[in-house]
Nucleic acid binder design. Structure first.
Length: 277
DNA sequence: CCCCAGTCCTGCGGGC
DNA sequence: TGCCCGCAGGACTGGG
């Protein structure tokens, strides 16, 4: 499940495409449901062929392939991957950009469940279409005071608030559980009820965990889906203290078994000893 | 406005 | 051994 560290790893991995020229935008005729793409692949081909890729960037959990004057925006959601030259398998490759470059032949969008989306938008519209009203500040760029103010403004449980991309962009289900555990905060606590000390711990642990996860190229879970841009697995899953560890002993206090609850229809994992209200 | 539930989509694992 | 069902969840939609 690509969250900020996994998407950042994809961006770094595909950086060799910068400086390449796009030859063709190709529909690989994937056997599954068609890719959610706007406008059509044909139109995107017409707009992009012959253009130089000037940069690769990330906004929250989205990947931007930048040209002049367009940006191709890839949203991997649950099971999408952006890769170069090879993907986990051929069957689930949903989009191919063939490139003129001495470093890399193809930029691939692969997605096993196909929940992800691709869109081409004018670069000048990125802020208006993707950021304003849709995404809060990036989790690696937000200030501590802004983090505090934005989260404390809702009465929802802190775990649910952390997943709201309008409040803060980049944190997903896995890292939300991990950072709350590291900060010793009960995930059920209303975000408005946490004091500034708790927010300071949460802010610091969020940065530490996201940066460490990037160092480890993200987390590849037991389903094995997530890979970096070269199809290599991440290794941060070995550092997880609570995520997907229901009934296992807490790796921090050693006293309690990890508990799984459901909040806003998503699994939350926590240690009842380490994370008291 | 605020918040929650339903939806999309495929692969996998548990139960029988 | 094989089939069926439920579950995984990011982000969007609709409704209370």
């Amino acid at each position: 499940m690509p969250e900020l560290p996994e998407v950042e790893t994809m961006c770094r991995g595909i950086s060799p495409v910068v400086g390449a020229t796009i030859k063709r935008v190709v529909d690989p005729n994937c056997a599954f449901r068609p890719l959610k793409i706007q406008p059509t692949i044909k139109t995107i081909h017409r707009q992009l062929h012959g253009r130089l890729i000037t940069g690769v960037s990330r906004i929250g959990k989205r990947v931007l392939i930048e040209t002049e004057p367009f940006a191709l925006v890839l949203q991997p959601k649950m099971t999408g991957l952006v890769a170069i030259d090879r993907a986990p398998d051929a069957a689930h490759v949903r989009l191919i950009l063939t490139l003129a470059s001495n470093k890399v032949n193809e930029l691939l969008y692969w997605d096993s469940r196909g929940l992800g989306t691709v869109a081409l938008i004018p670069k000048d519209d990125v802020q208006r279409q993707l950021v304003i009203g849709k995404l809060g500040p990036d989790a690696l760029a937000i200030t501590e005071s802004d983090f505090f103010e934005r989260l404390a403004s809702t009465h929802r449980p802190i775990k649910v608030a952390l997943l709201d991309q309008k409040i803060l962009a980049g944190v997903g289900n896995l890292y939300a559980s991990e950072m709350l555990h590291a900060a010793h905060i009960d995930p059920r606590t209303p975000a408005s009820k946490l004091n500034s000390n708790a927010y300071r711990r949460l802010f610091q642990q969020m940065l530490r965990i996201l940066l460490e996860a990037i160092e480890h190229e993200g987390s590849t879970l037991s389903d094995g889906t997530y890979r970096n841009a070269l199809s290599r697995e991440g290794s941060y899953q070995s550092k997880h203290l609570v995520y997907d560890r229901e009934d296992e002993n807490c790796r921090s206090c050693g006293k309690s078994a990890i508990v799984r609850i459901v909040q806003a229809q998503r699994s939350t994992f926590f240690c009842p000893t380490c994370q008291k209200r």
